[in-house]
């Protein structure tokens, strides 16, 4: 009938483009890999060519063999650092989202506590690390590290959730008001979905920061009970075992990369259907 649709759909355009993405994805992976290999080969060549001492810059091959030789120690340290930073990350997500939601429920509450959240953010974690370590005691350094990593990872979650909660479309708020939606339903069906892209962006930043927080805190805590990758780096430095230092560094950045990719994948999965940031280019 007259209601039959004559409006154009974007579907056709999308299917035309459908052939390019696999090629593009392949290039996206291939190019960085090639660049990395060239860089490593150049490094190896330079170190060998100029006969640079391994105490200054070890060649990648030596770092690799050290990694294999030291794999038990490396894995133990990785386990420690990973546990601390992942726990801190989870805590940051839960506390950041919860407080972000609570904070935006009332203007007064938000005005009252927001400055302190900012203060917590701008104080360098290194500066409060000794205090936290003293408070929780040197026999529980892991707890101090957890708290410090959490403090660092917490703020992006809090601020992004708060901004996201307030980003709900005004017209949609009207629709919800029209049907007399309760505060809870507005939260559940409007504000939280609106905040999702912001929360996920916050989680991506937070995941990286939780690793940084854990490492920095471990540096400050220094010797003894902390046995993570950061301590391994310090220890190797004092022993002038530079290849071991580099292998710990490598493991650390591989770990950071892994978290980044996992959070990105989660973000893509949750937003791919609707959010601009994850849509494939259609023209």
């Amino acid at each position: 009938m007259s209601l039959e649709n004559t409006l154009p759909l974007e579907g056709e355009a999308a299917s035309d483009e459908a052939q390019t993405p696999p090629r593009r994805a392949l290039l996206d992976r291939l190019l960085p890999t090639i660049a990395g290999l060239v860089f490593l080969l150049g490094w190896e060549g330079l170190v060998r060519g100029y006969n640079i001492s391994k105490f200054i810059l070890p060649p990648p091959s030596l770092i690799f063999t050290t990694m294999i030789a030291q794999r038990d120690a490396l894995l133990r340290s990785l386990q420690f650092t990973a546990t601390i930073s992942l726990s801190a990350f989870c805590l940051a997500i839960v506390s950041g989202v919860t407080l972000g939601v609570l904070l935006t429920q009332s203007r007064t509450v938000e005005r009252t506590f927001w400055p302190y959240a900012v203060a917590m953010q701008v104080t360098p974690v290194v500066a409060i690390a000794p205090l936290i370590i003293i408070w929780v005691g040197l026999d529980r350094v892991w707890l101090a590290l957890l708290i410090l990593a959490w403090i660092v990872a917490f703020f992006p979650m809090l601020s992004n959730t708060a901004i996201g909660m307030k980003s709900a479309d005004h017209g949609l708020i009207n629709v919800f008001d029209l049907y007399g939606a309760s505060r809870w339903k507005k939260l559940r069906y409007l504000q939280l979905p609106s905040a999702m892209p912001f929360i996920l962006a916050g989680a991506r930043i937070s995941s990286g920061l939780s690793v940084i927080g854990a490492v920095v805190a471990e540096f400050v805590a220094g010797s003894g009970s902390a046995t993570g990758l950061a301590y391994m780096i310090i220890e190797s430095g004092t022993m002038l075992n530079i290849p071991r230092m580099f292998s710990a560094l490598t493991v650390l950045s591989l770990f950071g990369l892994t978290i980044w990719h996992i959070t990105s994948a989660v973000q893509r999965k949750l937003l791919s259907k609707w959010h601009e940031s994850e849509l494939k280019q259609e023209n």
């Binding site: 017209g171 949609l172 629709v175 029209l178 049907y179 339903k185 069906y189 979905p193 609707w274 959010h275």
Partner: peptide, 27 residues
Amino acid sequence: VGFVFQEATLMPWATVFDNVYLPLRLK
């Protein structure tokens, strides 16, 4: 009453079905 605004004001994260279902869900 039903209200149609100047903008379509749809929830971008929800399907057409869920967007239309919204008023009933709220009830």
